[in-house]
Structures are given as structure tokens and as C-alpha cells.
Amino acid sequence: KHCVKCNKAITSGGITYQDQPWHADCFVCVTCSKKLAGQRFTAVEDQYYCVDCYKN
């Protein structure tokens, strides 16, 4: 599998969101770069925000 963000191979520790593979380090808030894996977040038009950034 290849990460949908960076297009590099996922060798271990990847996550899946909406049936797409991601590196955990690539699945981050677009505003603050906080890792979103296992966290609550909001998706708006294929942009992902942590709860704090989305509220602001």
C-alpha cells in the first residue's frame, strides 16, 4: 500500500481512513500538524482539522 498523501510505501504502522491508506505521520491537522490518528477530528472538503483548530 502507498500513502494517499505522500505516495510512499507504508511498511508498518499505517492507518486507514475512508478505505484509504495513510502513514500516521501524514494524517495530521492542516493547521497545526497535530497527528489525528486515534483523535477526534473534523474533515472539510478533504482537509482534516483537530478539534481545537476547527473550533477556531
Rank of each mutant, 00 (worst) to 15 (best):
A9F: 02
K5C: 15
Q18I: 06
A9N: 15
K5T: 12
Q47T: 03
A24M: 05
K34W: 03
K35F: 05
D19W: 03
D46Y: 03
V51D: 07
Q47G: 12
G14V: 11
G38R: 09
D25M: 04
G14R: 10
C32Y: 01
S12E: 06
V51R: 13
G13A: 13
W22I: 05
H23S: 02
D19K: 13
A9L: 11
C6T: 03
D25Q: 08
K5S: 15
T42L: 05
Q20L: 12
C29H: 02
A43F: 14
S12Q: 10
V4G: 05
K1T: 01
F41M: 13
H2C: 03
T11G: 12
Q39K: 12
V28A: 08
K35M: 12
C50M: 00
D25C: 06
K34F: 05
C50K: 02
V4W: 03
S33E: 13
W22E: 04
K8E: 15
T42K: 07
W22K: 04
H23K: 01
C29R: 00
C32P: 00
T11I: 13
Q20M: 14
F41W: 11
T31M: 09
Y17C: 13
V44P: 10
A9P: 09
K34C: 04
C26D: 00
Q20E: 10
K35A: 13
H2W: 01
T11P: 02
Y17Q: 14
S33Q: 15
N56R: 15
K8D: 14
C3Y: 02
K5Y: 15
N7Q: 14
Y48F: 08
K35V: 06
G38V: 09
Q20N: 07
V44T: 07
T42D: 03
G13P: 04
C29L: 00
T42E: 12
C6D: 11
D52S: 07
I15E: 12
Q18R: 13
F41Y: 14
C3I: 00
D25A: 08
E45D: 15
C26G: 01
L36E: 08
D25W: 06
K35S: 08
H23G: 02
V30S: 12
V51M: 04
K35W: 07
C53E: 02
I15Q: 10
K1D: 03
N56T: 04
D19V: 03
T11M: 14
G13I: 07
V30W: 13
G14K: 12
T31S: 06
Y49S: 10
D46S: 15
G14Q: 10
V28M: 11
V30H: 09
C29W: 00
K35T: 07
I10A: 03
E45P: 04
R40M: 11
F27H: 01
S33H: 03
T11N: 02
P21R: 06
T11L: 09
R40T: 13
Y48Q: 11
R40A: 11
T42G: 15
H23A: 01
T16A: 07
A24P: 12
G38D: 10
W22P: 04
V4I: 13
K55R: 14
D52I: 04
G13C: 04
Y49W: 11
N7P: 03
D46C: 07
T31R: 07
D52E: 10
F41L: 12
E45M: 13
N56C: 14
C29T: 01
T11Y: 09
D52M: 06
V4Y: 05
C50L: 00
T11Q: 07
C29M: 00
A37R: 07
C3T: 01
N7Y: 08
T42W: 07
T11R: 08
I15K: 05
V44K: 13
C26H: 02
V44I: 08
D46A: 15
F27Y: 12
E45H: 13
A24E: 01
C29F: 00
P21S: 09
E45F: 05
F27Q: 03
S12F: 03
K1L: 15
K1S: 03
E45Y: 05
G13S: 09
A37G: 12
V28F: 15
T31L: 09
Q47R: 10
K34N: 10
V28T: 06
S33W: 06
Y49Q: 13
D46N: 03
A37K: 13
Q39D: 12
Q39P: 10
Q18L: 08
T42I: 05
L36F: 11
P21D: 08
N56E: 01
F27D: 00
K35G: 12
A37N: 13
Q20G: 07
D25V: 05
V30E: 08
N7D: 04
C26S: 01
Q20V: 07
F27R: 05
Y48K: 05
V51I: 11
G38W: 05
K1M: 08
A24R: 15
L36M: 14
V28G: 07
Y48N: 15
S33M: 05
V44C: 09
T16V: 15
V4M: 03
D46P: 02
A37L: 12
G14T: 12
G14L: 11
Y49N: 02
A24W: 05
W22S: 03
F41S: 13
D46M: 02
Q39Y: 07
K1W: 02
C50N: 01
C29V: 00
C50I: 02
Q18F: 03
C3L: 00
T16I: 05
Q47K: 10
T31E: 04
Q39N: 09
F41G: 09
F41H: 13
C26F: 01
Q20C: 06
G38P: 12
S12Y: 06
H2Y: 15
S12D: 15
I15G: 08
Q47D: 12
F41Q: 14
Q39H: 09
I15M: 14
Q18V: 09
C6A: 04
H23P: 01
A43Y: 12
N7T: 15
T16G: 09
W22Q: 03
Q18A: 09
W22D: 04
V28D: 07
G13D: 04
F27G: 03
R40G: 11
